[in-house]
Design a protein around this nucleic acid. Sequence first.
RNA 1: CGGGGCGUAGCUCAGCUUGGCUAGAGCGCUUGGUUCGGGACCAAGAGGUCGCAGGUUCAAAUCCUGUCGCCCCGACCA
Length: 523
Amino acid sequence: MRGGGGGGGAGAKGGAAKSAISPTREENYAEWYQQVVRAAELAEPSDVRGCMVIKPWGYAIWENIQRSLDRMFKLTGHKNAYFPLFIPLSYLEKEAEHVEGFAKECAVVTHHRLEAGKDGKLHPTGELEEPLIVRPTSETIIGATFAKWVQSWRDLPLLINQWANVVRWEMRTRLFLRTAEFLWQEGHTAHASAEEATAHTLRMLDVYETFARDFMAMPVIKGVKTPAERFPGAVETYCIESMMQDRKALQAGTSHFLGQNFAKASEIRFLDTQGQLQHAWTTSWGVSTRLVGGLIMSHGDDDGMIVPPKLAPTHVVILPVLHKPELKEQILNWCNALAAELRKKRYADREIEVEVDARDIGGGDKTWQWIKRGVPIRLEVGPRDMEQDSVFMARRDKGAKEKQAVKRAEFIERCAAILEEIQSNLLARATAFRDQHTRTIDDRAEFDAFFTPKRQADENAPPEIHGGFAMSRFCLDPKVEAEVKDRLGATVRCIPIDGADDPGPCVITGKPAQKRVIFAKSY
RNA sequence: CGGGGCGUAGCUCAGCUUGGCUAGAGCGCUUGGUUCGGGACCAAGAGGUCGCAGGUUCAAAUCCUGUCGCCCCGACCA
C-alpha cells in the first residue's frame, strides 16, 4: 500500500496512475519537497530546532558532491585545512559590513562549564571573558591566520579550502535549503593583486558552473549580484543561479571578491617585489548541503528523488525475485555474480556501485523504495530472466512501468553508457524546463503579470506555481530594486556574466539600461 | 519577529463543539499462514504519561492560562 507517510492517493489496484509522493508538485510544491526528503530517506528534522539529521542516503550524496568538488579544488591548486568552530567575538567586529550581515544570526558561547544546581539540573557557569561565536562563516578567523602565514609576495597566492559545518540562526528553516547548521565548503585565498584575486574569484565560479552542469545535471547561470544581494564585506559577489521546478531561483553557489576589506581588517600584509608593504587581496567561495535541495528540486518527480548517476551512491540496484524457495539460492548467486561483474566496470572515474537488495520484504514495496530514493537503474532478476540470461531493466528517468529485458552481457557492456545517457537526459530535461520558463520581457505590464499568480490569492491555499526567469533590462537603481521586491516578491538574481550588452530602456523605469538581468522569485 | 494553522501509536488522522466506561481507525511493525514478475491477503499480537506545565472540576485528550515545537504566508538569509 502506501509508502511511509503522506502515502499515495487511493490504494487503487491496477487503476489509474498514482504517484508515490503525495501531494504532487502541482498540488503543493513545498509539501511535495518535504515528502520527497522523507520518502527518499535523505534527512529528517532533529530534536534540535532548525537542525537536521542527514540520513545515510542523503549523506552519501553529499559525500559524492564533496569528493567531486574536492578533486576540482585540488586540481586548481588548493589545499584543505581546518579552522576553529569558535571565533572570538572581537574578530567578527573587525569588518563593519560583515558584522552587520551576520551579527543577527550568530550562536554565542558565553560559558564553559556546567554545574548541578539545587534543582538537580545543570546550569552554565564559568562565564567566558570574551564570548565566542559559532562560525557563521570563517573569513575573520582565517584572515587572522592568513596574517601570520603571509609575509612575502612569495607566500602568495595562498589557496586554502575548508570542509566544515557552520551555524546561522535562521528564523525559518527547510531541510537542506536552509537549516541552522549546515555543511559546506569554504575556499579562502589571498593574492598579490586585485586582478589576480578577481581572476581567481571567477575561476572558482567556473568550477562551480562545471560541477553543477556536469555532475549535478543542473544548468546554472553565472552572474554578478547587485549590491543588495552582495555578501557582507565583499566588493563583488558572483553566483550561479538555477531554476527549480516551481520556477523559483536557487542560488547554488557564490564566489566573492573581497578586495582588501578583510586583509585590512586582519592585517594580511606582504612585502612585494619592490619591498613595499601591501595588503593582500582575498577571495572566498562556497557551496553547501543546499545543493542536495537543488538536486531534489531540479530532477525530482511525483515519484520522488532522481539522483544524477554521477552523484548516485548506488548506480544499479538488483532486485532478485525470490518467490520460488527452491530457486532462491541460485538466483541470489546469479545476482551476486552479476553485481561482481558490474563492479569491475567504471563510470565517471568511479567503479559502478551496485547493490543487491535481497531483503525479505514485499517485492513491490521494495521496488518503490528505490524509486523514491532515485537510484538510476533498477534490475529485476527472476527465474525467467536467469533462464534467458537477461535482466529486466528500469531507468529512473523513465516511467516506473517502462521496463525492458536486456541480455546480461549486453547490460554489463552498456551499463556505463546507459548511466551517461540518464545523466545527460536529466541535464537536457532541466535545461529545457528552465528555457521554457525564461522570458525576455521589455514591457512593464507583462513583467508585473509574469510575477503575479493567476489564481486569486487564497490565504491558506498553497502558492500557485508561476513566473520564472524574466530577462529584462534594468537601470540597477537600488530603490527600484527594493520596490519591485516589495510589490512583486521578485528580485534581481544576478546580472549574467555571459550576457552581451543589450542597451535599451529599463523595464520598470524606462531609464537607460546597459544589460539584461534575471529577475525571479527565489529561495 | 508579525499573521494563520496544527501538536492524540512509527506515519496519516478520528474523538474535543456538548468534560464521564479499559482512548480508536487505517497504514507500518512482530509472529504464523496463504500468495507472488510486483506498492498482496488472512489471523493473532506489540505499541499511546493525548507536546509540556499549571488551573477549573467529583472527573480533562476534551474547558481556561501559559509555554515549547512544527507547518504555511510575510520580513531576513546559502
